[in-house]
Design a protein around this nucleic acid. Structure first.
Lengths: 267, 267
DNA sequence: GGCTGCGTTCTATTATTTAGAACGCCGTAT
DNA sequence: ATACGGCGTTCTAAATAATAGAACGCAGCC
């Protein structure tokens, strides 16, 4: 199945995630390929503009072309830049790290964040991933997928801590409660010591596009603290949604909560 | 030369730059390939996680994997997020659009921007490109490449307006003046009606890594206005550089101005 | 001065991708 | 109700394109 393409993409991936330029033998070792194979593939990647030879020394590194492409993908959803100010506001209200996440399959990917100024804080990286079923932003996103859950949710999901919800039925119940409350909570279900709270962000068509949330150490974000912060997080999600052109945030959210499988969309 | 890889990357590129999901025949038409070929390649891209079938309808769209990779590439240079606050400050001081640009070959790529609040403003897109020799950020970046200019600068560069500097020697002279002044100016050399001003950003090792600049309509940014703004732009570049760990910004810049081809690097 | 590591080049062998037609599906127009 | 046209998908023989492995040139190092 187009192994050349797979190899090329994998090589690009390795190169993108490397801290610096890489040599041919180095890559050949990591990818279990012959040197000539790596060489040829790299030359193709260079010709396509994704990679460039690092000056002088015979090593290769990524260009910014990946960034260019990624920007095109993101630009049709200009959510991150629109979200920036609301996230800053949320950060100063809660003093916790603020995330904007989008769904990619059964994972969330963090597209923007504001770091908490506190010495102890939750860590995450822009572009990083987390399993959606055990983080607050992910649960918020899954809860608002059409049909009360994503298509193809397996019977059992991977466990990461003692608190991870792994059963599908249990998870669907959780989603229902997320829709009832209007926000999702994570109590150490992904990382033992990290809790979070998130709310759904709707676009101009009333469709769920992202989730905005806060997260921090479990000691600071006990359930009582989380519930106290819930209104401001929901406010931020609502404001952002309105900024994106959604004029009936509360109404759409209520329709989801009411159990309507496919609420009439409305911006 | 690995045509399969080229096709796959091209297809990914087209898909990334499309406004929405695309069908197979559609892509086959645009890429001049047979349907079966497109189909197979798409399946490979799906398997690799770069593309997903768009629900229901038989079309395909990009996942966020490209964003994930691009984020890894950018993360080793955490310049954009570090730059954010300085750029905001610059935006409120000048009321113009603020850019952060990096060099990619002989082009700049915009990695971050703060939009001016003025009704009339310069347009650009994050991830977008511009020829380095005729924009302020690009000239700043080129001027500080080792050797007083980039390697492989052709004798003559493409003209875009009547003011574009196209001759290599003339351009090298311009770079020298940029180094003398500590900032670069663009007077409608890329788009007739857009002017700009930019200064170099140095990293912890004293190496040029980005340029920060403002740009706006020529009527507002005449040369006098530009020169008035020069100090605040340079201040922003210096502050950002210091934030990145460069402790001797002025000294390094002066060494470049002095004509030292390769100043001693120092953070 | 020879050795070891690197990136690069070369070529016959081989597995891979390719083109093109046929298939099944669905909505539309007849 | 039915035939049509367009779509994504599948299949298979034919041939192109990628592969492995050794040889080469060039460093720096012992």
């Amino acid at each position: 199945m187009d192994s050349t393409l797979i190899k090329g993409l994998t090589m690009l991936e390795v190169l993108a995630k490397s801290p610096g330029p890489r040599g041919i033998s180095d890559l050949a070792g990591e990818l279990q390929l012959t040197k000539s194979n790596v060489h040829r593939t790299l030359q193709t990647l260079v010709a396509a503009g994704y990679v460039r030879p690092s000056e002088g020394t015979g090593t290769y590194e990524c260009t910014l072309k990946l960034f260019e492409l990624a920007s095109s993908v993101m630009s049709r959803l200009d959510v991150p830049s629109a979200a920036d100010s609301y996230m800053h506001a949320l950060a100063s209200e809660t003093n916790e790290t603020v995330h904007l996440a989008m769904l990619d399959g059964l994972e969330v990917i963090y597209v923007h964040k504001i770091e908490s100024q506190q010495p102890v804080r939750a860590y995450s990286a822009i572009g990083g991933r987390a399993p959606a079923h055990c983080v607050a932003t992910g649960k918020a996103l899954l809860a608002y997928q059409d049909g009360g859950g994503p298509t193809g949710l397996p019977d059992r999901l991977p466990r990461h801590t003692g608190r991870t919800i792994t059963g599908r039925d249990e998870l669907l119940g959780e989603f229902a409660s997320v829709r009832r409350q209007g926000y999702a909570i994570n109590r150490g279900e992904w990382r033992e010591s990290v809790c979070g709270l998130a709310a759904i962000v709707l676009d101009a068509a009333g469709r769920p596009t992202a989730a905005i949330g806060i997260s921090g150490p479990a000691e600071r974000l006990r359930v009582t603290a989380l519930r106290r912060y819930a209104p401001v997080v929901v406010d931020a999600a609502r404001s952002l949604s309105e900024r994106l052109g959604c004029t009936r945030y509360d109404q759409v959210v209520r329709e989801y909560a009411g159990g309507a499988k496919k609420p009439n969309k409305g911006g």
